[in-house]
Design a protein around this nucleic acid. Structure first.
Lengths: 228, 228
DNA sequence: GAGACAATTGACAACCAAGTAAGTAATAGC
DNA sequence: GCTATTACTTACTTGGTTGTCAATTGTCTC
């Protein structure tokens, strides 16, 4: 990304960082934007605070991103790109169906636990009714390949008698996300209404087991003839 | 709170509405506030739009609620009160354990589907890190009675051999909420990434079945000796 | 070292927000 | 009827917002 790209005035490979480090400034603004949007949403975010976090002048934000909304759009794209590229490294098709689905569940759970920024950006975007995510070229239908992979696993497992017939791949994946998502996305409200700290390591670990169990139990055949 | 209910200078029951309808004005501002906070969150909400929706003057908002934040707090309390009072009418302890848990699941699913304002307020409040929900007297630990009810059902079912031993009541309830929540709370982002309209009646109905199934399968004993 | 150009900046304009002061007018009690 | 109360309103202040202009400074090429 650093040098293999689009600067039409690129004066050739010199090896050192360009002038006063434009790429680093851009990145620091993007990161600061993600943090700020996670804490305050789009309308609550302040461009002044963003550049304060980034340690640069407000003018740079407009120089690199034109407007607060375009920065938000770039931030949204960034967090989705990260998820998709991590998913791509999973290769669950190589594994036995039930094991593969449990691995996907564990991966999703761990990803959400490790990446609160993704969840917060998703919350913010849903409060905005998906106004921006629709307009990012790389995102629409980007989950389709994963759904097809899950469907393949379900078909294989069903044929082998190790998976309960009739499970819908999309509903299953939505449920995996749901179970991995809620205790982070609604951490504060749930913690208060239960009187328990859901961020505690004990609860997070217990829940991981619970979620993998729940999905594992669901996909296995009910009638106990798990042969083959 | 101090001004929440019966005015202490209530001059007796006269039958007609009080003077220039103070209660109706207050209620219309509260409702308009809920709608506005659902659409824009706390910081994105505009007091000018709220009073426009409510059909009254901006000064009335400050007269009845003192500030935008206190109106937000009142709105949050309102949506939680509604959920708790509906839950209270369920009486699931009278029913057989598995049936009771499936009924709770169906109720939760239907409530979330029918009450998007609850979900949106929860999202907004979590983006605010639960700053306000903690400060509402009636809410902290308000889910505890329900968790105890679920625990009682699980114990009974376990003793009768109709429920899988070792299930944690809180984790189970979190999962029920999760499964009922996600397709509403993340409707826009999920619809875009899947390329499917999750609000469609077909999907919503299919998902209800899926969720009840998932929970029902999980709580039943795995080893097939569902006796008694 | 000189010059050029890109990265960066301080100061500011235009705007919109929440919240307020001081008043108007409709209703209730006498 | 008249007076006191109080629901309600207009017009405004104050402060923060996004976005911009003109100028400055660092770095690279010559």
């Amino acid at each position: 990304m650093r040098d293999a790209d689009n600067d039409d005035h690129q004066p050739g490979e010199t090896g050192g960082p360009r002038s006063r480090n434009a790429q680093a400034t851009r990145k620091s603004i993007l990161d600061a934007g993600i943090a700020e949007f996670c804490e305050h949403g789009l309308s609550g975010a302040s461009t002044a605070r963003i550049v304060e976090r980034a340690g640069c002048n407000i003018r740079m934000l407009y120089h690199y991103f034109q407007s607060k909304e375009l920065l938000y759009k770039a931030a949204l794209q960034e967090v989705y790109n990260d998820l998709r590229s991590q998913e791509a490294g999973l290769n669950i098709l190589d594994r036995p169906p039930v094991e593969a689905i449990e691995a996907l569940t564990a991966f999703t759970y761990d990803y959400m636990a490790a990446t609160p920024a993704f969840i917060k950006m998703v919350l913010a975007e849903n409060l905005l009714q998906g106004e921006f995510i629709r307009a990012i070229d790389s995102i629409p239908r980007s989950s389709r390949p994963l759904i097809e992979t899950i469907q393949t696993l379900l078909d294989r497992g069903e044929a082998a008698g190790v998976i309960q017939p009739g499970i819908d791949a999309m509903q299953l994946y939505i449920s995996i996300v749901a179970l991995s998502f809620i205790h982070i996305s609604s951490r504060y409200t749930l913690s208060v209404t239960f009187g328990v700290d859901l961020s505690s390591e004990r609860i997070v670990t217990e829940r991981r087991q619970h979620v993998v169990d729940l999905i594992g139990t669901y996909v296995r055949p009910k009638s106990g003839h798990a042969a083959s």
